Simulated scan of single mutants.
Amino acid sequence: MRNTARWAATLALTATAVCGPLTGAALAAPATAPASLYAPSALVLTIAHGESAATATPQRAVTLNCAPTPSGTHPAPALACAELRAAGGLDALAPGDDVLCTKQYDPVVVTADGVWQGERVSYEHTFANQCVKDAYGTGVFAF
């Protein structure tokens, strides 16, 4: 339980560090000028083994910034941002047609918190196993 609280605090601080400058810049812009030419997109993504984020300890966490240019600690930010844009967001990611996975149940949970195209996002999805997770967007959850 203590470890979960530590991870939650770490993720909250990371999200604040990533998303904080995005909100401050919009507030500082003059009322007559447009606040930005792009909608902010900055996410903190985590992967854990378990059935829910509440009970699983995150194994890895990365940041993904997609606007104005792909960046962050994600190993392939350009690919991940392109997949998210093409799909229309996290909820619309679909598995590849040519992927075959076993029916072994070893749950993997992924989360995403932050801002996607100007909208607040809090996403959690549990996959039956690592293979099924890898079938959903080859770049977004590949870290």
Rank of each mutant, 00 (worst) to 15 (best):
D98V: 03
A112M: 02
A56V: 10
L11T: 13
T14D: 06
L13G: 14
G24Q: 13
A67N: 09
S36L: 04
Q104L: 14
L84C: 12
T69G: 02
A76Y: 10
T14H: 00
T55A: 15
C81F: 11
A35E: 11
T46L: 03
K103E: 11
C81I: 10
V108K: 03
V99N: 11
Q104R: 13
A92M: 05
V62E: 13
D106R: 14
C101E: 12
S71P: 06
T10Y: 13
P107N: 03
R60I: 12
T23A: 14
C66H: 07
P34M: 05
D97P: 01
L45Y: 09
A82C: 01
Y105G: 00
A9R: 06
T111A: 10
A17G: 13
V110G: 13
D97V: 03
L27M: 09
L90A: 08
T16A: 15
T111M: 08
A53H: 10
D98N: 11
A86R: 14
I47L: 12
L37F: 12
G20W: 00
A94N: 02
R6I: 07
A29W: 00
V62P: 04
V18W: 01
G24H: 08
E83A: 02
G72T: 09
R6L: 06
L93K: 05
L64E: 04
A8S: 12
L43D: 09
A48N: 06
D113E: 14
G88W: 08
L64A: 08
T23H: 07
A5M: 06
G20P: 06
A48M: 07
A82M: 01
C101T: 10
G114R: 05
G50L: 09
P40N: 05
A15F: 00
P34Q: 10
A33P: 00
A29K: 13
W7F: 07
P70E: 05
C66P: 07
G72A: 11
A26Q: 15
L43F: 03
A92L: 09
V44E: 10
G88E: 07
G72S: 10
R85K: 12
R60K: 15
T16V: 06
A67W: 00
G72H: 10
P58T: 05
T69R: 11
Q104W: 06
A12E: 13
V44Q: 09
G89Y: 02
P95Y: 04
A76T: 14
E51L: 11
S36V: 01
Q104A: 14
D98M: 04
Y38F: 13
L45K: 11
A26Y: 09
A86L: 08
A48C: 08
T16R: 12
A28N: 05
A80I: 04
A54N: 02
V62A: 15
T63N: 12
S52G: 04
L90C: 02
A67H: 04
